[in-house]
Amino acid sequence: MTTHRLLERRLLFVTGKGGVGKTSVSVALARQAVRAGKRTLLVEMDDKGALARLFGSTDLTFEAREVEPGLHAMRMTTEESLREYIRLFVSNPLVSTVGPLARILDFVANAAPGVKEILAVGKLCWEVREEHYDIVIVDAEATGHIVAQIDAPSILSGLVQVGVIREQSKWMQEILRDAARTGVVVVSTPEEMPVIETHQLINEIEERTQVSIAAVVANRSPRVVLQERDIESFNTLLDNAPGAVLEAPARLVQLALQRRATATMHLTSLAARANQSGVPFLNLSEVGGADDRVVVDALTESLGAELS
C-alpha cells in the first residue's frame, strides 16, 4: 500500500470555520498516519479539551504522551512553550534573573503582537526540525486566526528589527514555506457559510502567505438516501401521498433529499476550489450516532477510503 501524498508532509495545520469538525478530522488524519507507519504527534491548540474527550482521557499536557499505540498527543500552552523557549534559546545566566514568569507571560499573551503565535508555531516547527516525529498534525485555530498563526514568523520579522526572535523566524519560515513539508488542510461542511469561509481562507493563504494548501476536506457530507433512478418515482409518490400511510415517512426522505441537493451544490464548489489549487479533495460522509468516539471511528474509516 502506498502512502497518500498528504501524509508524506511533516506538518499539517487542520483548520476551518468553527463547528465544522476540525478536531474529529485531525484525529482521523492522525490515525491514518499511524496506520501508514508514521510516528505521529497530534497537537491541540486551545484548551477546550475536545481532543482529550475523544480519546476518553483526562486533559492533555504540553508533554506529549501516547494516547493510542503509535499516536502521541499534546496540548499547546503559551506558558509552557515560553518556558521551553527560554530554556532552549536564552542563555542561562539571563534566565536565572528573569524572576517570575507570570509577568513576561502576561506581556506576551496580551501586549506583544505576534509573540504568542510565534511561540506556538515555533514549538511545532521545532518538533519538525528535530525530527522527533514523522508527522505533526495540528488541530489548529479557526479560519479567523489561522493566518496570524502560520504567518507569525513573517509578521513578526516585519515588526521586529533585531533580536533572537527575528533570527529564529528564518528557520521557521523555511519549514513553513516548504510545500513538501508543510501544508494547511481546510475543513468545511457542505453548507453555505463554511464554504464561503473556505474560499476566502484559501485565497488569503495563497495571496498573503507562502504556506501551501495541502487538502480541502468536506466533512458531514449527507449520504445518498435514494438511488438516482428512483427519484422520479419517489416524487410521483410524494405528490400523491397526502392522506396515505406513507406520507409522514416520505416527508422525512424528502427533507433528506433536499439537504443532499443543497449539499451537492456546495460540494461541487469545494471540489472546484481544491482543483484550482491542485490539491486533493476529500469527501467524508455524515455519520450519525450519540457517541462522539464512535463517530470519529467511522470518520477515520471514511477518510481511509478517500486516501486509498
Binding site: T97, I104, F107, V160
Partner: peptide, 12 residues
C-alpha cells in the same frame, strides 16, 4: 531583568 530578557528576544 524583564527588560533585559525581553530586549534580547524581541529587540530593543
Amino acid at each position: 531583568p524583564f527588560f533585559l530578557v525581553a530586549n534580547r528576544i524581541l529587540g530593543a
